[in-house]
Design a protein around this nucleic acid. Structure first.
Length: 646
RNA sequence: GCCGAUGUAGCUCAGUUGGUCAGAGCAGCUGAUUUGUAAUCAGCUGGCCGGGGGUUCGAAUCCCUCCAUCGGCUCCA
């Protein structure tokens, strides 16, 4: 007998060799019907794999992410099986489960596959699923596995197996389809009741641009048809929050092919929104001891040779601008730091003056590959809410944590609580990608890790994601469709101060090298606004929104009174519009609701007589009658509540 | 940049196999209406069917090419 410990700490005895399915059945028939995989001492196993030793186990159902993963991984095999039947000769790459569903990378040779073919594949998948094909695990020696795929002519699998360690290699077979796979899988294809292929994409073999591009087919599956329907509805809902759609509807920004792709044009409402954000941060920065600086949009080639940007990005970036007679070369600035370094160099600093904090909403231009551009989140010209802190080595941690505080303050003010934090370190196996010494990198990475821990932030540590001059702490947020974007970033840099030979005079009257902290709490205004739009669905916080209120006169008769109210509210610094159109009140309300204006102020006979306004709140409805003063106080209180740190 | 898809009025979309196919709703303009918490009525304007080239007696529709957009891949200072 062996002892099996369940998640609730209860211990049950089973005969040696008991399987997950048998454990589930011993608990209840219902669980046995719904269980998808089992975790044995933290490792996910097939339900029919015998357990020979005492173990902690957890039974995974659809409600566990591990259960979904098992389902989706098996669904990837199911899709591959369907594709192999429909398109004989297809070669298969990899087919994992992902956060929402699964994909399989396939090579169809001369054939192509597109969304038109999806239905046929889905039908075939369901047909196979209904047969309840059992997933059979077999283990074979490496040579045998290689021979199998060499025979089949599938060079991708051969490539995969060649990289595996010698020994036995596991295969899973269900029906006619056999696949190299370490598992685990469902018992059989039965639980897969609903499938939907979502899209296709080109994907380089092993993520390497220089290798062949395979066709990646994305799909998702569910144990119930209803769940699929709900998932598709959810996707539709998410599309409604897409910043590109809302940006157009609310007239925030646009693009023009004539101006150039990836170059956003901010419309008046969008510009006002952005200015409100900038004002907010400028105020915060002034309090935190930042000094504004302003630098030009281009810089001499020499500047970027010193910073290392030229070597790193010169060839892949915009071409230089040349002066006609002197033959000088200038680049559109890709970053503000080199300019700020030169500002620091413009005079001598004492250790007593540090830290020096230079802040600039600096617009930068980067060549992004055309296929990478995406609304406001990935553009070729954007404005960073940039600042560079030049400090003494002993001030790094304190300055770093102070920046974290600013980022978190902003996130709170915008009710932006669903973010993740990532520490990006260098790739120790490929130091050629970076500038600077080992010792400097170690110091910088240590500073970030310690400061982050001190602030109690739970950060994922990712190697190989650092900037070329230093490690980063990034704040990431998901968009409406679940894609992750980097917003705020804080970077510790020992390298650029060396390259620019930055110095300050220490208490010992000697020259010392400062440390630089690069930081941008929003990241870029463009990307931040994009994510903000999707976060609030265009219903911006009251303090930020361009138009806070709109006056809706019942008829032309009350226009004079409406103008008086408008004047009063403007004196209260409430951003107010007046709808003077010759329309019925219902229409004006509908339009104001569509424009997502927070407050609608209806004025007619009653209001004019009493010197009041009828207040309707966006998305909520009639709030009743207020005096102008009362309303103004209410607005200001609401705003204060939002922007004061909670 | 690569793979795949898409491109018809400002916006959202119809347009059958190439042959009155240049359409609708909203928006806009002009009038009428003087309006009380999500759409008042009527009339009108508006499109080189993304650009260019080709096939054809004839192209929004088929082919090539360029541009832009969308979904991924790669990249992201």
């Amino acid at each position: 007998m062996i002892k099996i410990t369940l998640p609730d700490k209860s211990v049950k005895e089973f005969p040696k060799g008991v399987t997950g399915l048998e454990i589930a059945r011993s608990i209840s028939e219902g669980l046995a019907r719904n269980v998808l995989s089992i975790e044995v001492n933290g490792e996910t196993w097939d339900l029919d794999r015998p357990i020979h030793h005492d173990a902690r186990v957890k039974l995974n159902t659809w409600d566990d992410s591990e259960g979904k993963a098992t389902m989706w991984h098996s669904s990837a095999h199911l899709m591959a099986a369907a594709i192999e039947e429909l398109y004989p000769g297809t070669k298969f790459g990899i087919g994992p489960d992902i956060e929402n569903g699964f994909y399989y990378d396939i090579d169809l040779g001369e054939k192509t596959i597109s969304s038109k073919d999806f239905e046929q594949i889905e039908q075939k998948m369901l047909e196979i699923a209904r047969r309840k094909e059992v997933f059979v695990r077999t283990e074979v020696p490496k040579e045998e596995a290689l021979a199998f795929y060499q025979d089949k002519g599938d060079e991708y699998k051969v490539d995969l197996i060649s990289d595996l360690e010698d020994g036995t290699i596991s295969f899973y077979k269900s029906g006619k389809f056999t696949d190299l796979c370490k598992g685990p899988h469902l018992i059989d294809t039965g639980p897969i009741k609903a499938v939907k292929l979502l899209n296709t994409a080109g994907a380089y073999w092993r993520g390497d641009e220089s290798r062949k591009q395979l066709t990646r087919v994305y799909g998702i599956s569910f144990p119930k048809q209803k769940m699929l329907r709900e998932y598709l509805e959810m996707l539709e809902e998410a599309k409604k929050r897409d910043h590109r759609k809302i940006g157009r509807e609310l007239e925030l920004f646009t693009f023009s092919a004539r101006v150039g792709q990836g170059l956003p044009l901010w419309l008046p409402k969008g510009a006002e929104l952005r200015e409100n954000l900038e004002k907010f941060l400028k105020q915060l920065q002034r309090k935190a001891g930042y000094q504004p600086v302003i630098t030009p949009h281009i810089g001499n080639r020499n500047l970027y040779e010193i910073s290392g940007h030229y070597e790193k990005y010169g060839e892949d970036s915009f071409r230089p601008i040349k002066t006609p007679s002197e033959g000088e070369e200038f680049f559109l600035k890709p970053m503000n730091c080199p300019h700020h370094c030169e500002i620091f160099k413009s005079r001598q600093y004492s250790y007593r003056e540090l830290p020096i904090r230079f802040a600039e909403f600096g617009t930068v231009y980067r060549y992004e590959q055309s296929g990478e551009l995406h609304g406001l989140t990935r553009v070729r010209g954007f404005t960073q809410d940039d600042a560079h802190i030049f400090c003494r080595p002993d001030q790094v941690k304190e300055e770093f944590t102070a920046v974290i505080d600013i980022v978190l303050h902003i996130f709170r003010a915008l009710d932006f609580m669903d973010y993740s934090v990532q520490i990006s370190l260098r790739d120790p196996d490929d130091m050629s990608r970076y500038i600077g010494t080992e010792a400097n990198w170690e110091k910088a990475e240590k500073a970030i890790i310690e400061a982050t821990a001190e602030k109690g932030l739970k950060a994922d540590i990712v190697t190989g994601e650092a900037a070329f001059y230093g490690p980063k702490l990034d704040f990431m947020v998901k968009d409406a469709l679940g894609r992750k974007w980097q917003l705020g970033t804080i970077q510790v840099d020992y390298n650029l101060p060396e390259r620019f030979e930055l110095e300050y005079i220490g208490s010992d009257n000697q020259k010392h090298r400062p440390v630089m902290i690069h930081r941008a709490p929003f990241g870029s205004m463009e990307r931040f606004v994009a994510v903000l739009i999707e976060h609030c669905g265009g219903n911006f916080p009251l303090w930020l929104i361009p138009d806070q209120a709109i006056i809706l006169p019942i008829s032309e008769k009350y226009e004079e009174y409406a103008k008086k109210v408008l004047h009063l509210l403007k004196n209260y610094e409430i951003r107010t519009l007046l709808d003077e159109r010759n329309e019925k009140t219902g229409k004006k309300i509908r339009d104001a609701e569509t424009r997502k204006i927070p407050y609608m102020l209806i004025v007619g006979e009653k209001e004019e007589a009493g010197g009041t306004i009828s207040v309707r709140k966006h998305g909520e409805g009639d709030l009743g009658t207020y005096s102008i003063d009362e309303f103004a106080q209410m607005i200001h209180r609401e705003i204060d509540r939002m922007i004061s740190a909670r």
